[in-house]
């Protein structure tokens, strides 16, 4: 610092640029180190190994009558498993997809045939979380309000879902999500996740 005022010889310029390079390199190295050091802290906020290990749930389908539904826990959220009646399925299939508020996406398609497993039309499996602000819609237990479309009704802000779990009326923007699942034990059990 003190030397930099003395003269501006070529030699000195060379020195100064080498010095500046050193400063920049050091600052850059320290910045890289600081950023890397932040990673373990951020990473630790993500789900831990034991949490991830619980990411799948198995339920038995025995005892669920046609027209009934159960709620099971999966990743800390409720999952609706509904055994639909033939009439409910018919209603769900009869809807013109173009009239639906949500056209659907890969995780939650609009077409009822794609919302269930082929040949297992009566089993509807949905993440039971309203796509509006995360409340749990009513309609799984007997006696709960099922809304205008006989599916589910979210009492928080009045969203109505149909018998395929698609949004039909109210503020919710999207259809209820279909979680990844498969039938196990010759179709008597369900593995979610």
């Amino acid at each position: 610092m003190a030397t930099s005022n003395k003269s501006a010889t070529a030699d000195h310029d060379h020195d100064a640029s080498r010095r500046d390079f050193l400063f920049v390199a050091t600052a850059a190295t320290a910045a890289v180190g600081g950023a890397s050091a932040a990673w373990p802290f951020i990473s630790s906020l993500n789900p831990a190994a034991d949490t991830l290990a619980l990411a799948s749930t198995e339920v038995s389908l025995a005892g669920i009558e046609v027209g009934q539904a159960i709620k099971v826990m999966w990743r800390g959220k409720p999952v609706f498993v509904r055994r639909r009646t033939a009439e409910e399925i018919k209603e769900a299939r009869a809807v013109d997809l173009k009239t639906l508020p949500d056209a659907g996406d890969a995780r939650s398609p609009a077409d009822d045939a794609k919302r269930v497993k082929a040949g297992k039309d009566e089993w509807l499996v949905l993440v039971g979380v309203c796509t509006h602000l995360g409340c749990i819609p009513q309609g799984s237990s007997t006696g709960e309000i099922r809304g205008d479309y006989k599916g589910w009704f979210c009492p928080c802000h009045g969203s109505h879902y149909d018998t395929s779990g698609r949004i039909r009326k109210g503020p919710a923007p999207k259809n209820l999500e279909v979680p990844p699942y498969e039938f196990v034990n010759n179709g008597t059990g369900l593995k979610i996740g």
Partner: peptide, 8 residues
């Protein structure tokens, strides 16, 4: 189980 928990 916690990510980088051992380090912290």
């Amino acid at each position: 189980d916690v990510n980088y928990g051992w380090l912290l």
